[in-house]
Amino acid sequence: MDINFLKKELSSILSKKRYEHSIRVLETAIELAKIYNIDLEKVAIAAILHDFAKEFKRDELVSISKNFFKEETEDYLDNIEILHSYAGTYIAKNKFNINDSDILNAIKYHTTGRKNMSLIEKIVYIADAIEPKRDYPHVKKIRELAFKNLDKAILVEVNNKIEYLVNENLVIHINSIEMRNWLLKNKLIGGNKL
């Protein structure tokens, strides 16, 4: 699929700020894909489309989620930060005819992560978290780690995210917890020490 076409589609639906974020995620994901020797086209498609539904109206996000991802989203219908990932997956499949499960899963899980993530899923997940304009505690460390050890970077990022959600008294998606535990349990980070 032509990335320039997807960029044009994206620019017509997103605000300038969100579009620029998507371009930075695309660039970061491509850099990581080159380091980890993974299909650049798949990574690029998933990265450019990851936030396609980010600015959809709440009603539309809830409707898509209820109709097409009911089981996965029923406990999170009040959280558009999570729902936009599912709606984006729906759009990728139904508007752009993307059927590749790696691409669809990278879009679907770019916010929460999940256990057993593929390399493409990991790259899009962490690229979204570390693109150059991201600024939050420990992002510099996470950014540096991502280019050396993807799993360690994801673990530090999800620990950071969980701590933030706990401090703000917000719901933590079960996928994020399962991803964290999966990384630790399977020692994908090369041991438990960071």
Rank of each mutant, 00 (worst) to 15 (best):
N105C: 05
N105E: 11
A106E: 01
I107K: 00
I107Q: 09
K108C: 05
K108N: 03
K108V: 06
Y109C: 10
H110D: 01
T111M: 08
T111A: 10
T111K: 14
T112H: 04
T112G: 04
R114A: 10
K115P: 00
N116C: 06
N116G: 01
S118Q: 01
L119R: 08
I120N: 07
K122Y: 07
K122D: 08
I123S: 05
I123Q: 04
I123T: 06
V124H: 01
V124M: 03
Y125G: 04
I126P: 06
A127H: 00
A127I: 03
A127D: 03
D128L: 07
A129L: 10
A129C: 09
I130A: 09
I130N: 00
E131I: 08
P132T: 07
P132L: 00
K133V: 07
K133L: 15
K133P: 05
R134D: 02
R134A: 14
Y136E: 08
H138T: 10
H138R: 13
H138M: 12
V139I: 14
K140M: 01
K140C: 00
K140T: 09
K140P: 00
K141M: 13
K141T: 15
K141W: 11
I142N: 06
E144Y: 05
E144L: 13
E144K: 13
L145W: 06
A146L: 01
A146E: 05
F147S: 14
F147Y: 15
K148N: 14
K148G: 01
N149F: 03
L150Q: 07
D151A: 12
D151M: 08
D151R: 11
D151P: 12
A153W: 00
A153Q: 06
A153R: 02
I154S: 07
I154R: 13
I154F: 06
I154G: 02
I154L: 13
L155S: 04
E157M: 13
V158E: 12
N159H: 05
N160H: 15
K161N: 14
I162E: 04
E163V: 07
Y164K: 15
Y164S: 12
